[in-house]
Nucleic acid binder design. Sequence first.
DNA 1: ATGTCC
Length: 502
Amino acid sequence: MLDDMFLFVNFRKIRDRKGVNFHGVEVIQGYTVVKDGINKWCIPKFGKMRVDAVIYVNDTLKELLHEDQSLRQITNAATLPGVVKPVIGMPDIHEGFGLPIGGVMAIEEKGVISAGAVGYDINCGVRLLRTNLEAEYFNKELLYKLIERIEYYVPTGIGKKGRHKGITRLIFDDVVHNGVEAVIKAGFGKKSDLNFIEEGGKLSGADISAVSKEAQGRGEEQLGTLGGGNHFIEIQQVDSILDEKLAERFGLFKGQIAVMIHTGSRGFGHQIATDYTKILWEAAKKYGVDVPEKGLAAAPIDSKEGKAYYKAMAAAVNFAFSNRQIIMFDVIKAFEDVLKKSSESMGFQLVYDVAHNIAKWEEHGGKKLLVHRKGATRALPAGHPQNPSFYKESGHPALIPGSMGTGSYVVVGTEKAAETFYSVNHGAGRRLSRNKAKKITKEEFEKAMGDVIYNVRSFKDIVDESPLAYKDVEEVISVLSERGITTPVARLIPLAVVKGAD
DNA sequence: ATGTCC
């Protein structure tokens, strides 16, 4: 179908010469973009592009593409060796380093691997916990107590070290090689939690010998810390159930208290990404890979440098899953302290944990592909063999957080998601760059936050995380659901949020 | 995102 686009574009040129406007073709940032059905637009390959690029947007979100360089970035990615069609931009797409945030790039075995196409925060991701607690009993006083206690247990903000650094230093090697199982053995959570984490909490192939001493030093002491920026711990209320059957399977009900944790691999992954962007940039020259911009620095998957990046990336992936596991343990402890109830009696249960910055080997259309997802979440449909056993029949929950003042969603991928390599968006997506967002006033910020409680003392530390700096999450969610790629299951709204500002 | 420029 996408191959037909060439004919279509040529046809359009002919029509244009005759002065006839053709609905469904636009020029954005110098790229000809052709409509390809509901909420899907295609940039047919041209020049050095090996494959088409596609973006999933509605008319409103499409307008935002005029404001950044994300189309240049997905078309650049489409020039890399081994890339499989199409390179994809999700509805929350915005400019990043190399590949845009909201980008999916699948590469065949003889192609290249790119650190910039995974991102600086390797295995940044989201974890959702459910409870049997009813939100109606959570007044402001209680919520303040809870976020205060959560902050007591979970260090937040840039450069913070973990409260458990004594233990984590000792198990660090085990953690990077074996993932969450290692932290569970050390007492953080229960064995069955592994059934509710993407990849069972462990991406195989990790090797600490591929990680610089500098990265190791930063990582050892940072397990169990939240970080800053868009990372958060949120006490949420299930606001609406959008699919009864799936919600029941996921243990979600209207009015329920849930907790969402959004964080990644901290300084550990950041250092690995920094190290390997440099290494892969040099390697690209050595192997003659034509890399269009430094952020897409890439080397053959098979090369020494490519293999080393995968080993180091997997180490950071395992670190981040484990980081969220320890934070979950500490959050539950905070609830136990404040509510004076046991975790069991509050019904705490991990719903799922998804990565949204990762490269993984997967099978698509009978081919083994290295799927780079950067600000994109895997969403396997019902019946897909890669689902964890508990969610085999339903498809696993894909978690999509909104901004700090707005709703978050639980969705499931459908069979139609095969066209995105079973990927969906990862959030609302930035609308304003951090610099532009600094211009938001305190009044505007507070109005946008409404009744949501938050921990931050200094407005200027958090202003760039304002809901106003993000796209409308409802709009973003509707793009893929209207196309039939996702089934929305539940909408959650924030009651109180812990952010990582000092 | 990030010991936000060794």
